[in-house]
Amino acid sequence: MSREATGWAGKQKGLKPATWRVLMNLADRHNPDYGCFPDQGRIAADCEMSRRSVNNHLERLVQMGLIRRERRINPKTRKQMSTRYILGFEDDFTQEPCANTAHGIDQKPCAKNDQSRVQNLHTNLVREPVSTTKDFPAETPDPALRCLNACGPGLSEYSRSVIRDTDEVIHGWIEAGADLEADVLPVLRERTATARDRVIRTWDYFTQAVRARQTRREAQAARAGKNAEKQHVRSAAPDSDHVAYLARWINSGARVPPSAVTNTQRDALLARGLVSEAQLRALQIY
């Protein structure tokens, strides 16, 4: 626990009780030397609320400029590590100055405080200074990071920061048979191609579209397999009457285009002795 953190959090005004409770929980778990790294499950248990409610209150604190969330990735395994919560009083909590020094929507301007950086806010209330997918290599094997790479402007900076808490949805898609390249990534590109007003907080938002695309792909593959099997049967056993017809056409001396005789039909003509190899070569049927 950091006395500086809890003292700073206790001075913040204009917060709803539940939001203030989440902020105080973060401050209580702040370590002066290492920072603040509680997972959302722990915050939810301590504050006696659901993870969804915790996420909403964290979003509110971000919008008000009181905290910043920093997603961390293990450089070796590329797996997601616990989120670091940077509180407004910390030295590495950087904010652009706000002309009105207001906390956010419907908030009164805060008084100047030499020990607090809360007054240095930005007018963009949904600003989330979190690294975007540009920081992730395109060839990363992590499906979740590849999904982030695929998303366009329709997935806002804030959405990119909170959606990582639902990465298990992506693994569920893959376990259910969805193909990352053929089903998942195309859906994400299509659904986030343009900016949108609605905030996407979970990968489950795309589940229905991913499953629909998977179903179409599997149906097309099944039809293609049946058609290929039928074609193989026809090619393996060409109709004898048609082969005899081709033999009469070739032996008549008339012009026979090479495309009129398939390789299977050519082999059948030679095997049955209906034409000679020299006749076929003269017609450029090899």
Rank of each mutant, 00 (worst) to 15 (best):
S235T: 13
T194V: 12
S53M: 11
T101N: 15
L145K: 10
L280G: 02
V275M: 08
A111I: 09
F37I: 03
D46R: 15
S235Q: 15
P32A: 11
I105A: 00
F89A: 01
R255W: 08
W203L: 01
T215N: 07
L58D: 09
A237W: 13
D197H: 06
R117F: 13
M64Y: 14
D197E: 05
L269S: 04
A228D: 12
D28E: 11
E229T: 03
D167P: 10
R60F: 12
V199A: 02
D167K: 12
V210E: 06
S252E: 03
R3V: 06
D183L: 01
L23E: 14
E157S: 08
R160Q: 06
P137S: 01
R71H: 14
V126N: 11
A237K: 14
Q208I: 11
A99E: 03
G225F: 05
R196G: 04
A111S: 09
H232N: 08
C147W: 09
N56R: 14
R78T: 13
R248M: 02
Q12A: 07
D183K: 08
P17I: 10
R71K: 13
A5Q: 00
A212F: 09
R223P: 07
K11Y: 12
T202A: 01
K13E: 13
N263Q: 15
E59D: 08
T140F: 10
R51W: 09
D91P: 06
P186K: 03
N55H: 11
V261L: 04
Q231G: 03
K79V: 12
L185W: 03
R198E: 15
G225S: 04
D39A: 04
Q80P: 11
Q231L: 09
V210T: 02
A237I: 13
E277A: 11
R198F: 06
V210K: 03
P258Y: 06
E4Y: 02
R42T: 15
E229R: 01
R3Y: 15
D114S: 13
R160Y: 07
Q40I: 07
R127F: 08
C147T: 04
T140C: 00
Q265A: 11
I285D: 07
E96C: 03
L283M: 10
P75D: 04
Q95L: 05
A102Q: 08
P17W: 15
T194Q: 14
T215P: 03
A144C: 09
T123L: 05
L15C: 05
K134P: 06
L26Q: 10
R29V: 07
V54W: 08
V162S: 10
S276E: 15
W249C: 04
H30N: 07
Q80V: 13
Q214F: 12
R78E: 09
R211T: 10
Q231V: 04
L61H: 05
W20I: 14
I67C: 06
G172R: 02
R213L: 05
R196N: 02
P238L: 05
L270C: 01
F89S: 01
P141T: 12
A254Q: 02
V210G: 02
I285S: 01
K11I: 00
I285R: 04
Q265T: 12
E48L: 07
T133G: 15
R272T: 00
R146F: 07
L180K: 00
E96H: 08
V169K: 05
L58I: 14
S259Y: 12
P153M: 04
